[in-house]
Amino acid sequence: MSHNVSPGSQPHETGLDRPLYTPIKRRSFFMYAGATAGATALVLAGCKDDDNNDPSRIDVGSGDGGILNYAYALEQLEAAFYAQVRTSAYYTASGTPAAIKQVFDDLALHEAIHRDFLRGALTANSITPLQDLKPDFSSIDFASLNGILTAARTFEDTGVAAYNGAGRYLSNNAFLALAGKIVSVEARHAALIRDMITYNSFVSSDVVNTFSPTLPANATTAYTGAGTPSLTPGNGNPVAGAERSRKPQDVLNSVNNYLASGSKLSASSFS
């Protein structure tokens, strides 16, 4: 079940369902049919098996366009989730605090805006947007605040780790800048959702490499980074006080749990 906050953002399909006003002669019809068959064969020849060898998975593609479509997929999923939150038993109950409903209203808008913006950016850059994905939220308890927050935490933390891990694959710095503008908003979401679940858990050790500094004895001695654990950045090593970015395929292996059959994704170009 797909929920979109902005039905007006969906692609126009006018034209496809119009009758053909000019009758096609029988010989012309076979000419077109033959050409189509040939084109189909060419398309099939151009396909190659991805690493997963799973024809049911949709690959996000390669290059900057692949990363943009990967982000578009994640935003589609988040937007659909919060849209469903806003129709949930919890949200629509009479006693639900207005301040909490306001948070979900904001989150639903932000994610829908991200989704529609990415679709527009893909089109503007002549990259074919990924199809509309069909989510599967059957594992989520939409009747309780805790059920909703737990799922929201998963989506937001995953989103941040995904954007952080995707940045290195972008060659166009305009796209990197756009990803940066979005990821910090996802991080804001994640921190608030976490504080709503357990206060002061906005940067807990399950998402950030916690660090215990060894502080100088007095204010005239400079702090130069001593502490535990001792971490050296580079080569994918964890960074002290920083989040743990995730590779696209790793992220999608998690995200696929929330996508229906036929909408599950792969990112074979970014391993």
Partner: peptide, 26 residues
């Protein structure tokens, strides 16, 4: 930071950047 030779540094900076945003949210 987005140069071929500094991708690891870029990724480290991105992983710090989102923590600053989490702090700010709090």
């Amino acid at each position: 930071l987005n140069t071929t030779g500094t991708k690891d540094i870029l990724e480290a900076a991105l992983n710090i950047h989102s923590v600053e945003a989490r702090h700010n949210s709090h």
